[in-house]
Amino acid sequence: MTRTRWISLLGRYGVVVALLLLVLFGWLRYDYFLGFFNISSVLRYNSMFALVALGMCFVIMTGGIDLSVGSTAALGSVVAALFSPQGVWIGLGAGVGAGLCVGLVNAALVTRLKIMPFIATLATMLAASGTALLLADNQSVSVSYDSGFTSIGQDNSFGFPIPAWIALAAYIAGWIILNFTSTGRGVLAVGGNEDATRMMGLPVGRIKFLVYFASGGLAGLAGVILASQFGAGQPIEGVGWELFAIAAVVVGGTLLTGGVGSVGATLAGVLLLGILFNVLNFENGKGWISLSAYWQSVIRGLFLLIVVVLQAKLAARGNAAVRDH
């Protein structure tokens, strides 16, 4: 039993183990890998993905999917940039608000009109992207440097980048909601067996509504950070973010069919994919090999596959052993 326990634990927390191994590898191999500058830039950049992945994690736990997060972040960045002259908070609010609007549409399509999440969010993905391009007039919208808007993405607080603090706060909130509120448990119940959850008397519609709404808001927030960090609203950014987010969530052991998932493991998944990218950059910097961005994608894809397959194998062995006892 103890051995099977270990196997099933390894299956569950495999992503954390992989993350630690990767960090160890980087630390041993590259001089400045754990240097302040590198850590801070990895965190700053990946905090956007972390926010998007958090929303995605909740959506996937209900058994749904949100393909619109990348476009929504792009839209959020444009809207935030447009409002940035009015001040930090207004820019921030506008960006998040734009994201919430997309989230609201997704939520309504999925819960009221009963449209399949894949289709509904595919439609809003296109619509949000188009809206971002329209608002930005097909170019990047530079933000106001006078209002202090750029401090959200570029400044540090207590030694760490502000975006990292924002992401951390969001993950702590997400963890508490998932584990210590009835809505959070409802998210997992809906994903595990929607009919049963309805029979149990839980507000299935409201739960699903909330996850899409929140996912939109988080994508909008990521967009705000994007605009602030790079000094411009980016209507064509965000392409492929949804896939990165799905990858991070899945690497974190969350089932795509819903019902099982973890906020912490999702964060580990984001960091794993982000740091892998970082490691490949360092490797390029060593000058031994030169990997184009395309090769990096291939390698990331392979790595993702290996982690997921290993986890599935380990989890299956763990489960089989548990059943036999």
Binding site: N179, F180, S182, N193, A196, T197, M200, L255
Partner: peptide
């Protein structure tokens, strides 16, 4: 009609959870 992935406690208590300080 229960949720197989979730714990016995959740399957029994979902829908009338006990709270302390607003949290489960």
């Amino acid at each position: 009609n229960l949720v197989p992935y979730r714990s016995l406690t959740e399957n029994i208590c979902l829908g009338r959870e006990k709270r302390r300080f607003g949290l489960l």
